[in-house]
Design a protein around this nucleic acid. Structure first.
Lengths: 259, 259
DNA sequence: CCCATGCCTTGATATCGATCAATGTTTGCC
DNA sequence: GGCAAACATTGATCGATATCAAGGCATGGG
């Protein structure tokens, strides 16, 4: 559709392992990563478009796909369900994210479901693997993406393990803000593409608790909620402090702190 | 210093992305990974040994190291601390694990501390990076290791997000059992190298709650506790069922289950 | 327009694990 | 061996969040 060349995940691609400025110049390694990204996304041909309606499942848990996907538009949730009702969203995927690229041809650990109308492009596993094996830069790029995902999971773990409900919500909103900053013209305006339930399953809370956290932050003047899915940030500093856990008030678990 | 050639993490290396038996034969890709591992570990020369006493810090949060490390013996914890007393262990590292290999020359997100006497071998970042860039198989190996770490973090996230205290402890013990299976002659005997506090910080619980969970599982006949750091598994099936969350009794968070 | 459905919010209560407070137990040092 | 420090266990109580239970508010179909 529109010929937007996808950029690497997150604006100003962090790509930790390559641009650490030790032996190769930053711009050189950035160029390498960009070239690799173009090669990779060129695999995602126009002929292999996938469109999903909201709530449609791209891939079930345990299912193996012979392709990875590049998100053109929309939002997906990676969901792990348990035999009883327990559920955990282990991540969201937004425009220009890769989905399933690490697990090509391996049974998926999670269900992948669109939380909003979504368009993706298929990247056949065989081609992805061939490119990875033949192109050093692509391998580096995949490594950089993997590291980013490790960092994401760690952030989420810290939230669920250490943060109270307002901190969790604040951190989630900050992440979302960072992801969609470019897309929106007004930086203080934030659209929530997912429902309370999905936010709750991401943050390890119940929907009621998520709702109460929204209410609390509205009352504290951190943001306004013109509609349940639209947020107007009023006090970004407080939101970010909450998100960073830089104050005292979270869930402690141990009395004695050493070191 | 015993000349044990380290094997890739986890016995019978899972290495998901390479041995999926689609185009290359399994043994061929396994051989490639093994060769890569040898090349990588040969970087960790005998001259660069590091020995840590229990509780000694290898690397502080925010510090950048110009080397990665290969664990010869012992156990390390990766710890994230917050301004107040909150703390989260985001992972443990055992013999034959790599430490910090993904974050070479980048400020560490976590503190790395020995929880027991530990010996490591340095792998200079520059050499690691050079080998990664020049050797395709090493790049693949690093990618496989990164995927494994993503899976580990996901497992931990599911524990902290969805499991009750006994499930969390059971899952932790099963993981530890799998990691040390080869080392111990008696498969039902398990040595805990870390203290209750570190287990608690890993599982997102308090030490008291961890202690109570131990007591509970002992009372339920799942294992015996000859001493606080020695476990004799009595009912492995129950332990594994608890760990897998394959029953009902965990922390639900949502009433309605669909899909 | 009216109704039905699904989502969101709010309130009351229950529960799980944290916290506070002792009391055991192990370990290592003298 | 005796002591001290660190670690582990146990009990009592508290608090944060889940759960249960109504409503409120949109949105869409007839």
């Amino acid at each position: 559709m529109k010929p937007n060349t996808p950029t690497p995940r997150r604006e100003a691609s962090p790509a930790p392992p390559t641009n650490c400025g030790c032996k190769s110049s930053k711009s050189a390694s950035t160029r390498r990563i960009e070239r690799a990204w173009k090669r990779l996304s060129s695999l995602a041909g126009e002929g292999s478009l996938v469109a999903l309606r909201a709530n449609e499942v791209l891939l079930d848990e345990g299912q193996r796909s012979d392709a990875a996907f590049l998100v053109d538009e929309g939002v997906l949730a990676l969901i792990k369900s348990f035999p009883d009702r327990r559920r955990q969203v282990v991540g969201f995927r937004y425009a220009s994210d890769l989905v399933h690229h690490l697990l090509c041809d391996v049974p998926s650990q999670v269900m992948v479901r669109a939380v909003a109308p979504t368009r993706l492009r298929r990247i056949p596993c065989s081609e992805l693997r061939a490119l990875r094996d033949s192109d050093r830069d692509v391998c580096s790029l995949l490594l950089a993406l993997a590291e980013e995902e490790i960092a994401d999971r760690q952030r989420q773990l810290l939230l669920v393990g250490c943060a109270n409900k307002e901190e969790r919500l604040a951190a989630f909103l900050c992440d979302l803000l960072a992801r969609t900053k470019a897309a929106s013209r007004r930086p203080s305006e934030l659209i929530l593409p997912m429902h309370r339930r999905e936010i709750a399953d991401y943050l390890g809370l119940s929907t009621e608790t998520v709702s109460r956290s929204f209410t609390r932050l509205v009352k504290d003047g951190v943001f306004a909620l013109p509609s349940p899915s639209r947020i107007r940030i009023l006090d970004k500093a407080t939101l970010e402090n909450l998100a960073a856990g830089q104050y005292s008030g979270g869930r402690r678990r141990s009395r004695d702190a050493e070191s």
